[in-house]
Amino acid sequence: MNIIVCVKQIPDPETPASSFRVDEAAKKVVPAQGIPPVVNPYDPQATEAALRLKEAAGGGKVTVISLGPESARDAIKHALAMGADEGILLNDPGFEGIDNFQTAVALAKAIEKVGQYDLILMGRAAADWDMGVVPMGVATLLGIPCVSIAKAIERVDGKVRVTRVLDDGFQTVEAPLPAVVSVSNEFGEPRYPQLRQIMLAAKKTVQVWNAADLGLSADQLGEANRWLKLEALYVPKVESKVEIIEADSPEEKARILAQKLRADKLI
């Protein structure tokens, strides 16, 4: 079973609000000092799903693709260390500041170039822009179905069977292959690469494709051709007005809290 996994490198989403800064004029997030970028947290889960499916099928290949700067190689290496077979970095000066709509266009081109695939796995959303549009975008551009927010994925009779997380429960669906499936956190913890695998991964080669390799002109990906225009980016202001309840014992604090809420007619 040949599976393609798409992984994105993003600023650490656990960056505390106190370290999070935006350059409003440039409409860009300022990288937080001392907090290196990470793999989008859902993407190792997508990689985990790919590895389990390959193991269950008893063979096949897992190819990892990332579009991003040179540093995105780390995101690919992480997937290779988990056990993926090959990596492709989509890197081009023209990709700087690319939006996730154009990203879907570039990824779809790359996937067509890879050619052989039964399944494409992605994360449910990238925790930078929090959009969750690339999986459906790639599926639409490739003309194949997309199943989102997977909790469990199985291959059954040449189809993919997915348990999806709904707002008030779960749903099990089946789609013909090839298909795109986006993986949610409910899927469970991804495996942690062992030292030996990290060393092995260092030896695996990562191919680099640029815009021309994908048949895209830098112009097609430039700011003028972005589908969603970013007009402003800022950090909302919040001021603290908290009243800390002081008393000698936790029980006493609890009683005072209840009485205050009563006085405010909140309970």
Partner: peptide, 16 residues
């Protein structure tokens, strides 16, 4: 819309 895990707000218009 909120983005960056709720740390930021973005304002957008559409090209299409």
């Amino acid at each position: 819309r909120p983005c960056y895990g709720g740390n930021a707000r973005a304002e957008h218009t559409f090209a299409g």
